[in-house]
Design a protein around this nucleic acid. Structure first.
Length: 278
DNA sequence: TTCCAGGCTATGT
DNA sequence: ACATAGCATGGA
């Protein structure tokens, strides 16, 4: 990854492994705004960045460049990951298609809330709901910080309903009560099995959402979230249907520690191809 | 009108 | 342990 950190921006010079559309539109994050072609604003925790293409380089404008060096996972070699993944035709196509995907290092609390909202929902509505929730955080002038646990605890059932959560408003109220006294930082050192078990005890968190939280919130890359799109991919490849949990097991067995990366390329590939038909 | 969206909870077997 | 109805909401 060829990039340069300056005082108020990062310049990304190698765009073979960095494409902002791929990174933000591959379903891992819901807190961003598209301004135009290769031109986005992304919000994470109490930070904001403006990302755009200029002379074949990406400019990441932010008051906190070091936060976004970590956020965009700049130190990981995605060329190597893609080469290791491209071991069959399906993966070759998926990797070629979403060549600029990177798995973001997002704020854990934000990931938990976002993916509980995501269940049986569509991405555009999830984005709207998350933007409304963000407005319950601190106003920084041009944008809001994501609310902390205390601020989340003050959001009412009626507010969540008004934010378009639907029946998930109940889940969120209960979930936030469950998380109220948990030291989230301490959970990061837990083993993956115990961690998943704990996540499954949270309201609104089932197998698929737990895998998303493990992957996007804890960077456990040996998890493979299976949603409706991955179910289609699984059928394309194996020509058979199973329960999502069993599909996930098969896929983790196959991809090992690269499962999470494989999942992102496949999800983006399948969902984008479908969108092109519409 | 019906189906679908990054599924989960509750209930019944 | 596995199967399935019901669930809010909006867009196609």
């Amino acid at each position: 990854m060829d990039y340069k950190v300056e005082k108020d921006k990062i310049v990304v010079k190698n765009t073979n492994d960095f494409n902002i559309e791929h990174i933000l539109e591959c379903g891992q994050i819901f807190t961003y705004k598209k301004l135009g072609q290769s031109n986005y604003i992304v919000y994470s925790k109490d930070q904001m960045a403006h990302i755009y293409l200029k002379n074949k380089n990406y400019i990441i404008e932010t008051s906190n460049p070091l936060y976004f060096v970590n956020f965009f996972d700049m130190q990981t070699d995605y060329t190597k990951i893609k080469n290791e993944l491209a071991k069959n035709d399906y993966m070759k196509n998926a990797v070629r298609f979403g060549y600029g995907i990177r798995i973001l290092k997002q704020d854990l609390l934000e990931v938990i809330i976002g993916f509980v909202i995501s269940s049986n929902n569509n991405i555009e509505r999830i984005k709207k709901t998350m933007a409304k929730i963000r407005e319950c955080g601190i106003d920084n002038g041009t944008y809001y910080s994501f609310p902390n646990m205390n601020q989340l605890g003050k959001i009412t059932f009626e507010q969540f309903k008004a934010f378009g959560c639907g029946y998930r408003a109940n889940y969120l109220i209960k979930l936030i009560k469950q998380l109220k006294d948990v030291d989230l930082r301490a959970t990061e050192s837990m083993g993956t099995d115990a961690l998943k078990k704990w996540l499954l005890s949270l309201c609104g968190v089932g197998p698929k959402v737990a895998d998303c939280i493990l992957l996007f919130g804890y960077h456990r890359s040996n998890s493979f979230p299976v949603d409706t799109w991955i179910e289609k991919v699984y059928f394309d490849i194996f020509k058979t249907k199973k329960s999502p949990q069993n599909m996930s097991k098969d896929l983790v067995n196959y991809f090992g520690d690269l499962s999470g990366y494989a999942q992102q390329y496949l999800f983006f590939y399948k969902r984008s191809l479908n969108a092109e038909l519409v």
